[in-house]
Design a protein around this nucleic acid. Structure first.
Length: 409
DNA sequence: ATGTAC
């Protein structure tokens, strides 16, 4: 007979590897994602077990929605290229009834205040034409360490680092205005370290692969190449990834400030923000203590959920999002999911859904309703309620947020 | 996710 702990998550054994603990009861998990988790479980550097969150799905090298603890080594592809990607949310003193009936001008004001969208070359709509003061102030905190990184890796200097600080990006990055269960207005956003973090991630992933090839390392997947403590590049990677994580957190802070300033130009009632604020990564690595050991914990699409710690779990653009409080569950390495998780690829989603379905699914949300956003339609994601139920032993729900405005790049 | 190359 199973005890109550076992009843809430599943453990899969992996021949020749550590076990996989999965908080996925009642949510679909692709076989390909399970095979990918098993690959990581077979690495000699993995500590104790791998934890899979209920939003788990196939990624490059490592699975999105997983927590990979490693001893004296880091897998750069497990962290990925959007280093420090995460969420920020801020509660305000505004009430639902303080918002105008027509939300289009609020959406437009936010879109003007924060550059968004992909960078198609010289004329970059996703970058600043002229960096505002808040960006220059934030950059001052990042610049000294960046200059050191550029001394060792000159190609980083060619990235659009300064003009992308405080900008949204594209894909699943977004800005939202939400209402909580008591009618309070929140601002929420999702973004990462933009082009410069991508350049750092890509460069070190490639260096790790080259190292593995040179050393004839036995790997279940080349994308799982890792740096060991003391080896060439390990220290540089730790430094660079830490810097990109700082860039990402500041990026979100700058945007949040700009969003709130923009809202004040449209909403004429005076209000306070940051009544409750959370800024959390869900794509990152850091040293932590678990089961009595110092380990590098890589959360690839997972959020830290120490006992009492607040986190953010966004649903898709038509669903709800959650502010959660961690329960510090040891076997999850004190983690929870980072969202609902995709159920199909972007291409499949664009082929599977119609604009009419998307309009129905996002009714009442002031957001994009064009065919190019179909890959982000709610039906392309897992049911957020099932995802929350599957991780009830990892987090408590503190606030339930429903979006009324959603901006995507 | 991003920026560059095809």
């Amino acid at each position: 007979m199973m005890n109550s702990e076992e009843a809430r998550h599943l453990t899969e054994t992996v021949p020749g590897g550590v076990p996989i603990k999965m908080w996925t009861r009642g949510v679909p998990v692709e076989e390909a994602a399970k095979r990918q988790l098993a690959n990581a479980a077979r690495l000699p550097i993995v500590f104790k077990h791998i934890a899979a969150m209920p939003d788990v799905h196939l990624g490059i090298g490592a699975t999105v929605g997983s927590v990979i603890p490693t001893l004296r080594a880091i897998i750069p592809a497990a962290v990925g290229v959007d280093i420090g990607c995460g969420m920020m949310a801020a509660k305000t003193t505004l009430r639902a009834e303080d918002l105008p009936d027509n939300l289009a001008p609020l959406r437009a004001a936010i879109e003007r205040a924060v550059p968004h969208g992909r960078s198609p070359g010289a004329r970059d709509p996703g970058a600043w034409q002229k960096t505002p003061g808040a960006v220059n102030t934030a950059w001052a905190q990042l610049e000294p360490e960046f200059k050191e990184l550029c001394r060792d890796y000159p190609k980083l200097a060619k990235t659009n680092h300064l003009n992308h600080l405080g900008t949204l990006g594209s894909g699943n990055h977004f800005i939202e205005v939400c209402l909580d269960e008591q009618g309070a207005v929140w601002f929420m956003l999702h973004s990462g370290s933009r082009g410069v973090g991508n350049a750092i991630g890509t460069m070190f992933i490639e260096l790790a692969k080259q190292d593995a090839l040179r050393n004839n390392a036995k790997l279940p997947d080349r994308d799982l190449a890792y740096f060991e403590e003391g080896a060439r590049y390990f220290g540089d990677y730790v430094r660079a990834v830490g810097w990109a994580q700082k860039f990402a957190a500041l990026n979100r802070e700058v945007m949040m400030r700009r969003v709130i300033e923009a809202a004040k130009t449209v909403i004429h009632k005076n209000f306070q923000s940051h009544i409750e604020a959370v800024n959390c990564h869900h794509n990152y690595v850091q040293k932590e203590r678990h089961f009595g050991e110092e380990v590098y914990v890589t959360r690839k699409g997972a959020v830290s959920a120490k006992a009492g710690q607040l986190g953010i779990i966004p649903g898709s653009m038509g669903a709800r999002s959650y502010i959660v409080r961690g329960k510090g569950h040891a076997d999850s390495f004190e983690s929870c999911s980072h969202g609902a998780g995709r159920v199909m690829s972007r291409g499949d989603a664009k082929r599977s859904f119609t604009l009419a379905q998307h309009r129905a699914a996002t009714e009442g949300v002031e957001c994009r309703k064009d065919k190019d956003v179909l890959d982000e339609t709610p039906a392309a994601y897992k049911d957020i309620d099932a995802v929350m139920a599957a991780q009830a032993e990892l987090v408590d729900i503190v606030h339930t947020l429903k979006q009324v405005v959603c901006i995507k790049g």
